[in-house]
Design a protein around this nucleic acid. Structure first.
Length: 211
DNA sequence: TGGAGGATCTCCT
DNA sequence: GGAGATCCTCCAT
């Protein structure tokens, strides 16, 4: 399992987002490893991006991590319930990052099933199995990533990091982002990246534009 | 299989 | 006071 170096995250945000598809999210939990292949992400480029928490350089206690060094985790609470994980990119004082929207479980199925549904994996329906990690809040819960423990976490550590993938060929597609309808121009930016035809991708892009 | 509505923290108006 | 980078349950097809 080869950890991605900090230099990877210091590239331009859109390049990092594109390159993250197919990489592995790894968490060391007790004596078990949780591994998920990243299949869907979104880029958030603060200063110019109305949809970002850091639009216009807005700086609050919540998003302080985004202003720090690249290669750290920005974990925030959304709707008061769900934890979502981002990778901070570029560098200090450039509040940009990539939201991890979905992963495909590769190792640690039992732990993920327990974290999500308090059930054994084999007792889950097919639909539930797919719902383990096919959304930003879901993967956060499956991996046990909370803002209390992991906001500001250095991804060079051994407990939570991003690793090189298998090297398989991956077809990456792009689309506008999800869930940001009220964000003006930025909602049209094709800053969502996902692996073509992967069943764990959270949502299919809309068949047609509704504009 | 899909749409409506509720849950409940953080920040802005 | 209200909306949000969401997800779950319930109910109707």
């Amino acid at each position: 399992m080869k950890k991605l170096p900090r230099a990877f995250f210091q590239q331009p945000t859109l390049e990092v987002a594109n390159a993250l598809i197919g990489k592995y999210l790894v968490k060391q939990q007790a004596d078990e490893q949780l591994i998920g292949k990243i299949v869907e992400v979104e880029a958030y480029i603060g200063p110019d991006d109305r949809a970002a928490h850091t639009y216009g350089g807005r700086r609050t206690p919540r998003n302080e991590t985004m202003f720090g060094e690249a290669g750290h985790a920005y974990v925030y609470l959304i709707y008061g319930i769900h934890h979502c994980m981002n990778c901070v990119t570029v560098g200090p004082d450039y509040p940009e990052g990539v939201l991890l929207r979905a992963v495909e479980p590769l190792e640690g199925f039992e732990t993920m099933a327990k974290n999500r549904f308090q059930r054994e994996y084999k007792s889950l329906t097919k639909a539930r199995q797919r719902q383990l990690t096919n959304g930003p809040g879901k993967l956060g819960q499956a991996f046990g990533i909370t803002k209390e423990w992991y906001n500001g976490h250095d991804l060079q550590s051994d407990t939570l990091f991003i690793a090189e993938g298998s090297g398989e060929d991956i077809i990456v597609e792009t689309s506008p982002r999800v869930g940001i309808d009220a964000s003006g121009e930025a909602k049209h930016y094709p800053w969502r990246f996902y692996e073509k035809d992967n069943p764990y991708v959270s949502k299919r892009p809309k068949p047609r534009s509704d504009e």
